[in-house]
Amino acid sequence: MDALSIRDLEKRFVKGRRGEVYALRGIGLRVAPGEIYGVLGPNGSGKSTLVRIVATLLLPDAGEVRVFGHDVVREAWKVRELIHRVSAEAAFFKKLSPMENLLYGARLYGIPGRIAARRARELFSRLGLPPDRIGKPMEQLSRGQQQKVAVARAFLHPPRLLLLDEPTTGLDPRSKREVQELILELREREGTTVFLTTHDMEEADRICDRVAILDEGRIVAQGTPAALKARVSCDGSEATMEDVFFAVTGKEWGDDEGPEAT
């Protein structure tokens, strides 16, 4: 059974005078259990909309999305037990400490406070969050530390499918590397399937088993990074993911910075 299967997915939004605009159109993909699958695209290409639909936070207009066989619309409850999402923005109660935020998150998943506190301490230690930060308000933590707390929150109730929506955006190179290592380690140790969106070409190339390139709400190419690069390599020199993007969209990376659908 696929960890994630998406078939003919469509999502439209009403955008003022522009009327209805397509955020996603004809999306189809399958992610195997234990795979790290990346969706690569510029801002406004529909990546976050796609993740939100899988996370049951948006309803699709057409098509079907299943997580380990469960439909995200009709069986949203079951899907929510199998997933967790980490997004680019720090979605925390800013005045609460990392521990208070994690206790809240854990209890929503039915984990009692005592067990959650023990697990949180283990995760903070593994992620290298300084102990003196654990009781401080989130707003006093650096961006990298906040993102580590976000990752720790996702693993309090280990998900079978982890949705990472640009998890390293805005991080310094060292923090970015640490989060990437953690994703690889978690896949290795827990067998977690990872569905990752990014606009970082190097990140997609480095950690993803397979990649889909999303442009203006459509998947224009998908495959392993090596296969995609081989497809566009012409004179024997190794292509980059940027070359792949240019070849399949006809655009330079960064040309299309339209507004994200939601």
């Binding site: 925390f92 800013k94 998150g105």
Partner: peptide
């Protein structure tokens, strides 16, 4: 305002 609404609505409670 806090930015947590999606996390609360995504939880299986």
């Amino acid at each position: 305002w806090e930015g947590t609404i999606e996390y609360t609505f995504m939880a299986p409670s």
